[in-house]
Design a protein around this nucleic acid. Structure first.
Length: 966
RNA sequence: GCUCCCGUAGCCCAACCGGCAGAGGCACGGCACUCAAAAUGCCGCAAGUCAGGGUUCGAAUCCCUGCGGGAGCACCA
């Protein structure tokens, strides 16, 4: 700063920072952003807002990272803050709060390295992030802040777990109901007990206690399952499908993931597949996110078809197919290697002649220990192939592209349509987790089956006639059925219907719907997560703890390292909570006298806490309910823009696109269960979702392809860039730690102030667009604030320089046009154009009034300051005070445009002749078409442009333009 | 491979239902202030909308093809 000749009250970094910290202190002291509830312990002051409509504005829950925020993070937070402030000024009771998704791996990994308890790191990180949010001037109601790691919070996460555990999905009612109602129906005989071994159902009275326990557990929305799960040794835990990328690696950390059969807790999200899919149509979400969720849920319509075994008609292989019309073309069958029927199918010896390739002869180079010419018996072949398939990670399967492998089981099934015998194979291109884990193979209409049929020399029968010029292999398009008995001649759609009707009439199957979505794996072998409220009794049956025993607190342990038992190929995880020996074994009285129990040692995934935090903001300190029902209804029940009731509770939810099928799917699922059980009043949690863009920045790679610290790179595009003297290559990427191109907000705040940073982030582009961080551009919005300041305050004395005399009519019209435009821009989250309109008005004010030394009319000064307030609240408060107002403008009404000042009496219309603008005419704003035409035809320039040509048509667009067609 | 989104001044971006291509900012140039520079102020500056075709009185906007960039899905029966 060049000291003496800079005016004492020039708006620069020093003054801005002084203003900002002063107002942040005052807001905190006054509780300016406290939002009252209609009842309960946060109800104080509600009478002030009782007549206002509610508005719930929400940011996605941040993880409190150790490195703090960079300038890319606050984009969405500033956006919601501007919107919340604007809506408060336009008459809403606005809820805007912030909390911390604080369980999770980084704090635990740091604890492993340093021995420091994750709670210590986590609390320090939260304190730092809270400081950063405060420094950004975000107007959160800080009384409502929560962290998932607070015992008072995770107690309710455990409570919700118990609610889900004690529920089952009633397929007739299409909703969750309490397990107690299921038991009552079983006891009364209204419902028959169904389990895996007795699918036909048995009377409750005939079951042993143990069987009853099993039947009930099989219905719960939370259950223990031993199916293969995603085991990630690199993270020391198992993962949900949503946490594994398409190429079989962990979303976090990019480690390989292996399939392992491990007994783990799962949540029955698949029961909700249909509602999760259908209700996407009810909410105002970006199409991109909705299509990602639709994709993930993956609904397929088709049929279940039963194929009896040739040797044993009592045993059937059920398949799912989307093409029941192609049943006549099924020439073999394939089961997933893990399919439970496989051991029964593998007969004692090969029938002659069995081709060598069916016996695994072709796998000699792929699988160790395959005898030349294949395995000696089907049993050995199946065992060998299953062993091979189980050790392959999804990465391996991807890497070997689409080469088909498999072995023959030695058994045949009967095609119910043709009566023909179909050889049954196992192959890893059929997945256990989808459909029934078995397929009928129709090589004529499925390329995967075609490839397999060619590799194993199996017959190919076309059942849909391809076009005459078809030269490809499998044909999946439309066409008439052929080689298909009673289907011949029917188009695909009709053939499907006919076949399903036939299957149902003959008892060979039925029309069904299958989803790609799988149940949610809910156990993690970590320390830093919510303990399960579950113990095991001496027969190893899980027992849920009663609500009165919540919370189950995390015990102290001395080593947080996740343990892996065994070698790479058959390693299994062991939860660190096992080290808390005294905690893990516990004596409890669960209504039948004190007994010893073992605790569940896994913890919940990080998604658990973030599934319901938006409900806790509503009533953060309630210790008798997760949220008071009155408070829940007040904040969650809203309306659509057209006045119909909204389906989701949160009015605006802003966050990144990365949670499309993780958090957003899980939270919808929990919300629906809570809705079914009567704990929340809306079927969806989030009515309107908005994805803010990412801030991009130049990142630099050295010759090895590693990122180097961008802030230490010198050079320019022409001369080239160097890092410590070595040349580096530039690329544009998402700002963040991994690309080493983060810019800290503190650096910008020190140079220009927080209001400039906020304004820049809002001005640089539409909120949902990715945009490059360009430090050079920041000066532009800073100058705007400086000029606006100077138009309101004398830079030498700090006194307001306004006059109470009315503004001239041109300036006043400009003011009201700006008010009108800024209002609709802010309503539509178009903050970039709102900033442009304010800049424009300020430039007009400067040009027409203050540049000549005159004072600013008060109406214009106050209008500008109030409109600026949502975007740059500190400087706006300061100016408002200097204009003589004693109280904060946070609760002051936003300026309103007078309709009369938005229309001009006379307007200028462009006149096109043959599509080119040739003249402009001035006409009264309310002139009708004939009057406009008369003025146009009287214009000399129009006549000159016409040059005597005949006018074929006159197009008059009211208050837009006139086009003369010649 | 399939599906979706986006291409406007040197750069970031406006243009609402098809109606004068330009609101705002950066950079750049000139002038004022200054011994000088920075800061600040004032003035100025530019593209015809990725390319080609179509619909229309009229296209950045709608349709088709291609090019470039981004995203999602991908052995899901």
């Amino acid at each position: 700063m060049a000291a003496e000749d800079t005016p004492a009250f020039r708006y620069g970094a020093v003054l801005a920072n002084e203003i900002e910290s002063r107002w942040q202190d005052r807001w905190a002291a006054d509780g300016t952003y406290h939002t009252p509830n209609p009842s309960g312990d946060l109800a104080e002051g509600f009478e002030r807002v009782a007549g206002r409509p509610k508005l719930y504005v929400l940011d996605m829950f941040p993880y409190p990272s150790g490195v703090g925020l960079h300038v890319g993070h606050p984009l969405g937070y500033i956006g919601t803050d501007v919107y919340a402030r604007f809506k408060r000024m336009t008459g809403f009771n606005v809820l805007h709060a912030m909390g911390y998704d604080a369980f999770g791996l980084p704090a635990e990994q740091y604890a492993v390295q340093t021995g420091q308890h994750p709670r210590v790191t986590t609390e320090a990180n939260i304190a730092n992030m809270r400081r950063q949010f405060r420094a950004l001037g975000l107007g959160h109601d800080d009384r409502r802040s929560v962290a998932t790691t607070d015992v008072g919070y995770y107690r309710w996460t455990q409570w919700i777990f118990l609610q889900i555990y004690h529920s089952w999905f009633d397929p007739q009612a299409h909703r969750a109901r309490p397990v107690s109602e299921l038991v009552a129906e079983l006891e009364s005989g209204a419902r028959l007990a169904v389990d895996v071994e007795h699918p036909e159902g048995r009377p409750w009275s005939e079951l042993s206690d143990d069987e009853r326990h099993r039947v009930v557990d099989a219905h719960r929305l939370v259950y223990l399952d031993a199916a293969p799960v995603n085991w990630c040794p690199g993270l020391g835990t198992v993962l949900a499908n949503e946490e594994v990328t398409a190429d079989g690696r962990s979303e976090r950390g990019n480690f390989p993931v292996y399939k392992r059969p491990l007994k783990q807790w799962k949540m029955r999200i698949t029961a909700y597949a249909e509602r999760l899919l259908d209700d996407l149509d009810l909410i105002d979400w970006p199409d991109r996110i909705r299509s990602m969720q639709r994709n993930w849920i993956g609904r397929s319509e088709g049929a279940r078809i039963d194929f009896p075994l040739a040797s044993d008609a009592e045993t059937v292989i059920s398949v799912f197919t989307t093409r029941p019309d192609t049943l006549f073309g099924a020439t073999y069958m394939v089961l997933a290697p893990e399919h439970p029927l496989v051991p029964r199918l593998a007969s004692g010896s090969w029938d002659e002649p069995t081709p060598a390739s069916w016996r695994g002869a072709g796998l000699a180079g792929v699988i160790d220990g395959v005898p030349a010419g294949g395995w000696a018996t089907p049993r050995e072949a199946v065992e060998g192939y299953r062993r091979y398939a189980s050790t392959r990670s999804d990465v391996d399967r991807q890497a070997e592209s689409r080469v088909k492998t498999g072995v023959f089981t030695g058994s045949f099934a009967v095609n119910p349509a043709t009566g023909g015998q179909l050889p049954v194979f196992i192959a890893d291109y059929v997945l256990m987790g989808y459909g029934t884990g078995a397929i009928m193979a129709v090589p004529g209409q499925d390329q995967r089956d075609w490839d397999f049929a060619e590799a194993f020399d199996l017959p190919i029968v076309r059942t849909v006639a391809p076009p005459d010029d078809w030269t490809g292999q499998a044909y999946v398009g439309e066409g008439p059925a052929i080689n298909s008995g009673f289907l011949d001649g029917l188009e695909v759609h009709e053939a499907k219907r006919t076949m399903v009707a036939w299957l149902e009439a003959q008892g060979h199957g039925e029309g069904t719907v299958t989803y790609r979505l799988r149940d949610w794996l809910f156990s993690r072998q970590r320390y830093w997560g919510e303990p399960f409220p579950i113990v095991y009794d001496d027969s190893a049956q899980p027992v849920a703890l009663p609500e009165s025993m919540l919370p189950v607190e995390l015990p102290e342990i001395d080593d947080y390292t996740p343990t892996v038992v065994g070698d790479d190929d058959d390693s299994v995880p062991e939860p660190p909570l096992g080290r808390a020996k005294e905690w893990a074994e516990v004596t409890l009285d669960l209504d039948d006298g004190p007994k010893t129990y073992r605790r569940e040692l896994n913890t919940m995934p990080q998604w658990a806490g973030s599934c319901w935090y938006y409900l806790r903001y509503l009533d953060p300190d309630n210790d008798t309910a997760l949220v008071d029902p009155d408070v829940e209804r007040y904040w969650m029940q809203g309306s659509k823009p057209d006045g119909r009731p909204a389906f989701g509770g949160v009015d605006l939810y802003v966050g990144g696109v990365e949670h499309a099928v993780l958090h957003l799917l899980y939270a919808r699922f929990w919300h629906k269960v809570l809705f079914d059980l009567g704990h929340v009043s809306t079927p969806e949690p989030f009515e309107r979702l908005f994805n803010q863009g990412y801030i991009l920045a130049d990142a630099f790679l050295d010759e090895r392809g590693f990122h180097v610290e961008a802030s230490e790179v010198t050079g320019d595009p022409e001369a080239g860039f160097t890092f410590r003297g070595r040349p580096v290559r530039r690329e544009l990427g998402k700002m963040g730690k991994s690309l080493k191109n983060a810019v800290s907000p503190e650096a910008i705040q020190a140079e220009y102030g927080t209001d400039t940073l906020r304004l820049y982030e809002m001005a640089m582009g539409p909120l949902d667009a990715d945009r490059p961080w360009n430090a050079r551009d920041i000066i532009g919005v800073h100058r705007f604030l400086q000029r606006l300041w100077r138009n309101v305050v004398d830079e030498e004395t700090g006194a307001a320089r306004v006059v109470d005399a009315p503004a001239g009519s041109g300036l006043r019209r400009a003011l009201h046009r700006t008010i009108d435009g800024v209002r609709s821009d802010m309503e539509g989250l178009r903050f970039n154009t709102a900033v442009a309109k304010l800049t424009e008005l300020n430039n007009t004010l400067t040009r027409e009034v203050t540049a000549s030394g005159a004072a600013t009319p008060r109406e214009v000064a106050e209008g500008l300051v109030l409109m600026l307030a949502p975007l740059a609240p500190h400087v706006a408060e300061e100016l408002w005070a200097r204009l003589g107002h004693g109280s904060s403008l946070v609760w002051t009404p936003f300026p309103e445009a007078h309709p009369a000042l938005l229309v001009d009496e006379e307007i200028e219309l462009p006149v096109q002749v043959a599509g080119k603008v040739r003249a402009h005419v001035r006409v009264p704003a309310d002139a009708d078409e004939a009057a406009v035409e008369a003025v146009v035809m009287a214009d000399d320039r129009v006549q000159a442009a016409l040059a005597g040509r005949e006018i074929r048509r006159v197009v008059v667009v009211p208050s837009r333009l006139v086009n003369l067609v010649v």
